[in-house]
Amino acid sequence: MNVVIVDTECANLTSVRFAVERLGYSVLITDDAEQIRTADCVILPGVGTAAAAMRNLQRKQLVEPLRELTQPVLGICLGMQLLTSHSEEGDVDCLNLIPAKTKRLREHGLPLPHMGWNTLEPTDDNPLVDTNDSYCYFVHSFAVAVDEYTIASSEYGERFASMIRHNNYFGAQFHPERSGKTGEALLKRFLELKLC
């Protein structure tokens, strides 16, 4: 089993690596296109801003290699937003692997960023989460609207997509690596995913 974390040079690489290692898998953190291409599954972590992350991916010449993957890919937090076509954060075009758009969460008299543990409502065809109301750890100010690519939604003043999927590409707005047993179970299912 060959798990690769794409080196986006962002702060949560270490905690994502440790979370996968706690499940008993070894991990390679790399920005090498060939190693990413040949991985069994790929995790795209991210914190920071969409514009800065896209700049990093372009500088590393990873945009096309990431677009051509056929194995399971999981984008986490900003990594999920990078899978969409466009982000309002810096008005930047993203990887366009899931035809959805990332927009700033609107104020609803609630504190922003949306930070803390919130519940997930998975759709029936979500292969990574099958229980309602499981709590996951979120921290974000931008979000993807609910649409046909949504496989779980959550509520913070408005309903937003907390997980999305298109073909082999999956995104989680929360941090599975910091979401207790729920996050561990999700990561385990992702790593064991067989796409047919």
Partner: peptide, 11 residues
């Protein structure tokens, strides 16, 4: 800090 990060699954 790294030993804690390795061990726990909450922020």
């Amino acid at each position: 800090v790294e030993r804690v990060a390795r061990e726990i699954n909450i922020p």
